[in-house]
């Protein structure tokens, strides 16, 4: 074996199951802590976001129709893919300046989160749904339904990024994820893992670049049903929440915490009255 030429990866966007460069042609230079240029990562534009939302909308009903069990299987597959690329993801975090042990922990946390939400998928209805006692001859059932298309502004930690995304799709939503900062390289690789996990095209779309350039478009977009502002700095959150409220968007800030409240944030409860009762 001779010394081959180093083949560097072109970090691209992940939209509708494909890896396009930004429609704008723009890239974001990413530097290591020593100032060395690591990569020119595709920098998502407003029109990339538009395309991503369109893909997410088109994929949503089909994804929600899958059984919760099947969604769980697919998210577990994502955990397997994360595990197999653990070293690469850790390396990508450390190259952008994350401390080694922190990076190890972050990747381990991301894998754990995917497993957690994989297991949650077929428990969600048990935990959040109910058969309600009502004063009449009716069967009254509250069941979970996904809000639809979720815009996720992730904090610059891989665990939060993976956890938010997994929780959202676990509940039957489709997602448009904005990622930047220290996880910008790992977010590029995450798209490859999603693409090989049987996640249908459009269910997860990952837009790398500068989230602050795009989160306003996400908040204003009438076809996005939920905005998670976990990665938005406090000083701009209020503005985004106001803009999201103008088009009746749900707003959450789960940061991908592994608990029922995160699951509920990505879920709506619908109650139906059925004119029959379970005979005693």
């Amino acid at each position: 074996m001779s010394d081959g030429i180093e083949i560097r990866k072109t970090y691209k966007l992940f939209i509708n199951g494909a890896f396009p460069r930004s429609e704008s042609g723009r890239t974001e230079p990413v530097h290591g802590p020593d100032g060395r240029l690591l990569a020119h990562v595709a920098k998502a534009s407003r029109k990339d976001l538009r395309d991503a939302v369109r893909a997410a909308r088109a994929a949503q009903s089909g994804w929600a129709r899958r059984t919760a069990y099947n969604r769980g299987q697919i998210i577990y597959r994502l955990a397997e893919m994360l595990e197999s690329r653990r070293g690469e993801l850790t390396h990508e975090l450390t190259r952008t300046g994350v401390d080694g042990s922190v990076a190890d922990q972050d990747v381990a946390g991301a894998i754990d989160a995917a497993v957690y939400w994989a297991g949650f998928a077929d428990k969600l209805d048990i935990l959040a749904g109910s058969v309600n006692p009502v004063a009449g001859p009716f069967l009254n059932v509250s069941a979970t339904v996904p809000p639809g298309v979720c815009g996720l502004v992730a904090p610059a930690r891989l665990e939060a990024l993976v956890s938010m995304t997994s929780a959202a799709i676990m509940a039957g939503n489709t997602t448009v994820v904005l990622a930047g900062g220290d996880v910008i390289l790992a977010a590029g690789t995450l798209g490859e893992l999603v693409a090989t996990s049987d996640v249908p095209p459009g269910v997860v779309n990952i837009l790398t670049g500068i989230p602050a350039d795009l989160h306003g478009w996400l908040a204003d977009h009438e076809d996005v049903d939920l905005l998670d502002v976990s990665g938005v700095p406090d000083e701009t959150r209020r503005d985004l929440e106001t803009r999201a409220a103008e088009n009746l968007k749900r707003v959450s800030a789960t940061a991908g915490a592994r608990d029922l409240s995160t699951a509920l944030a990505f879920t709506e409860i619908r109650t139906v009255w059925h004119p029959a009762r379970i005979a005693p």
């Binding site: 538009r50 478009w217 204003d220 977009h221 009438e222 076809d223 088009n247």
Partner: peptide, 9 residues
């Protein structure tokens, strides 16, 4: 409006 609209509307 400068905001992306929704087909469902």
């Amino acid at each position: 409006s400068g905001r992306y609209a929704r087909l469902d509307n």
